[in-house]
Computed example of a mutant assay.
Amino acid sequence: MTLVRGRISLVVLLAFAAVACQTQDKGPQPAYVSSSPYGAPAKLASQTRERGYFIEFRSRYALSYGHTYVIFGRTNKAGAVVQREVAGLAPATVDPTPYVVGHFVPVPAETGASDGDLEEEYRSASWRVMLTEAEYKKVVAFIRELKTKSRFWHATFYNCNAFVAEIARSMGYKTPGIWLRPQQFITKLREMNAG
């Protein structure tokens, strides 16, 4: 009986992974900017807002089904980024083997920037939330703590979407399921919270 349950569980896990891979990304989505009190539903705002701090939920194209991550930092009065840091979850190597293995068992992960995260031509969707200094400090403290405890990547149980979803939930936002493609995940995250 246990062997049968194990096989059924494996089939279900593979089905989730396969479904996530079957959809296709759209062209790059517009960059959205929101501003709202911390934990409240986000309202669309202009980038010129003088709060000066931001977090941007992002997805980018990749050879696989893409990648989800956050960029956070400061902007100037014109809305241009003057200081930024990246946090995301991915297998801790450029070798594709752990990425493939990570669809079956957890593999070691890294939580910083990966190749293509800061290149605008690879951005597939984004949602920037402008923050006050106090809100920013709270979010950054959560991200730093999350980075220290996120040591493994698994395509089904704890992937880049799950990592970003934890950050969004810490801010009081609703999050979509983690089995969406990254572009769909970021678009749905924005739609659920900013309309």
Rank of each mutant, 00 (worst) to 15 (best):
1 M>K: 09
1 M>W: 13
1 M>D: 13
1 M>A: 13
2 T>P: 08
5 R>P: 06
6 G>A: 14
7 R>H: 12
9 S>E: 08
11 V>F: 06
12 V>K: 04
15 A>D: 00
17 A>N: 14
18 A>K: 05
18 A>M: 11
21 C>W: 08
21 C>P: 02
21 C>T: 07
24 Q>C: 15
25 D>I: 00
26 K>T: 11
27 G>F: 04
28 P>C: 01
28 P>D: 04
29 Q>P: 04
30 P>I: 08
31 A>W: 15
32 Y>C: 11
39 G>R: 07
40 A>W: 10
40 A>Q: 12
42 A>M: 14
43 K>T: 10
44 L>N: 14
46 S>R: 08
46 S>F: 10
46 S>I: 05
47 Q>H: 15
48 T>K: 10
49 R>W: 07
50 E>A: 07
50 E>K: 15
50 E>Y: 07
52 G>W: 01
55 I>F: 02
56 E>W: 10
56 E>R: 12
56 E>P: 07
57 F>Y: 14
59 S>K: 01
63 L>V: 11
67 H>K: 01
68 T>K: 00
70 V>F: 00
71 I>C: 13
72 F>G: 03
72 F>R: 06
75 T>L: 04
77 K>S: 15
78 A>D: 13
80 A>W: 15
85 E>K: 10
87 A>G: 01
88 G>N: 00
88 G>A: 02
93 T>A: 07
94 V>M: 15
96 P>Q: 08
99 Y>H: 10
99 Y>V: 12
101 V>T: 08
102 G>M: 05
102 G>C: 07
103 H>I: 05
105 V>R: 05
106 P>Y: 14
113 A>S: 09
114 S>V: 14
114 S>K: 04
119 E>D: 15
121 E>I: 10
121 E>N: 15
121 E>A: 13
125 A>T: 06
128 R>I: 07
128 R>E: 11
130 M>P: 05
130 M>T: 13
131 L>Q: 04
133 E>G: 07
133 E>I: 05
134 A>T: 11
137 K>E: 12
138 K>D: 10
139 V>S: 01
143 I>L: 03
143 I>T: 03
144 R>W: 06
145 E>W: 03
145 E>P: 03
146 L>P: 00
149 K>M: 12
152 F>E: 09
153 W>Q: 02
157 F>N: 02
158 Y>P: 00
159 N>Q: 02
159 N>L: 00
159 N>P: 02
160 C>V: 00
161 N>Y: 03
163 F>M: 04
164 V>N: 05
166 E>T: 03
167 I>T: 01
168 A>C: 01
169 R>E: 08
169 R>C: 02
169 R>T: 15
170 S>R: 06
170 S>P: 01
172 G>F: 05
172 G>A: 06
173 Y>H: 15
174 K>I: 14
175 T>Y: 02
175 T>G: 03
175 T>F: 01
176 P>Y: 05
178 I>P: 03
178 I>L: 06
179 W>E: 07
180 L>Q: 15
181 R>K: 09
183 Q>S: 00
187 T>H: 06
187 T>V: 13
190 R>P: 04
190 R>K: 15
190 R>T: 07
192 M>H: 09
194 A>F: 06
